[in-house]
Design a binder for these strands. Sequence first.
DNA 1: TGGTAACTAAGGGTATTCCCTTAATTTTTA
DNA 2: TAAAAATTAAGGGAATACCCTTAGTTACCA
Lengths: 210, 210
Amino acid sequence: MIKVAITDDHYVVLKGIESLLKDEKHIRVISIHENSQQTLESLKKEQPDILFLDINLPDINGIVLTKTITKSFPEVRVIALTNHEDVSFVKRILDNGAYGYLLKNAHKEELLEAISVVAKGEKYLQKDIEKKILNQSLGRTKVSAFQPKLTRRETEVLHAIFEELTTQEISDKLFISPKTVEAHRTNIMSKLGAKNSVGMIKIAIEKQLL
Amino acid sequence: MIKVAITDDHYVVLKGIESLLKDEKHIRVISIHENSQQTLESLKKEQPDILFLDINLPDINGIVLTKTITKSFPEVRVIALTNHEDVSFVKRILDNGAYGYLLKNAHKEELLEAISVVAKGEKYLQKDIEKKILNQSLGRTKVSAFQPKLTRRETEVLHAIFEELTTQEISDKLFISPKTVEAHRTNIMSKLGAKNSVGMIKIAIEKQLL
DNA sequence: TGGTAACTAAGGGTATTCCCTTAATTTTTA
DNA sequence: TAAAAATTAAGGGAATACCCTTAGTTACCA
């Protein structure tokens, strides 16, 4: 019996997945949540084998949440749910602990395959996602590509990093302690799912955060 | 008496500047060179106060040469000569030791001002260079924007850095020692005039080196 | 006006990058 | 086939980035 949980702020998606899995005898949906708080509370009580997680939740950055979950509950395997066309982030999500990703309009077969593959401990990689995404976006309006939200200060620090300044130099420039700059760096990297400053700069340019 | 030397592979430019300075009693052109070898040889014998240096020499990367000169002959102040529209590199050249920069089509007044300012030990920054450059490039074909040339291996390493890999990871990937990777990193940074890996990535994207 | 996010910053690490020098070996090119 | 360029790599050290935890202090929003 595979225990599954789902987190998505769109109730339709939540119930949609739930109903698709209802008839599967080897799968049991143990909880559904609409936000990060509910999710974390729920995980404290009972851990599913697989958690479908919307990476575009309104209240929290999906990458940050994925990290938190995989750190606090290593036995829970996260499958990222994604709406959007943004291929570039798929890799980042995987890098940050997710075991797979699924487009929200995935068919039942894909859903089941993802579950069985991940349940076995392997990563589920939808082979033709790029093609799919490409087809989807043809002639459509861009819906909601993942847009990391940085705070005012984080943006300032990011700018300074972009200027090739060191932590010490940034601290001098902004009149704050180097330790504070470090804290901002860490938060920026976390939000962007970057491994190091190179990653920050790549995403900053890509996502036009500057 | 201000001693001036000039390095440019275009003989016209060389003679042009020389002739513009001929009548100035307080300025003496002590040597002119067409390439980096001549320049370095000449510097070993006599150091000028100011060296006009073409940053787009065919035989060597201008930034690297500027670094070498300012390191070996700190008393020589380099003024970068530039043809091109590439504003982004102006800052880099300054960051790498140059005291000023001048468009090759600069007027006599600008030339003299640059010399006197730099001779005083201040940096010469042509205020409206961006505007000038903008006007120049209007309706023109792009001539020869500075294009850093990386070797095959350097490009491979740069790619790996772009993938957010560490030196250790790159060394594993390419089956070479971490020390070799470091050597490549250093060379890439030097060629690009970058201060750190963030700079490398910025320029790599900007210059489409990937 | 109480809760939440943002900003601040410390201690105390480890990992990684960056710098400098030197040099052997291989590959390319004039 | 010499000379030049590229690739390899070492030692050794300094600077910077990254990580984890904890926590006080604003600022803003419902």
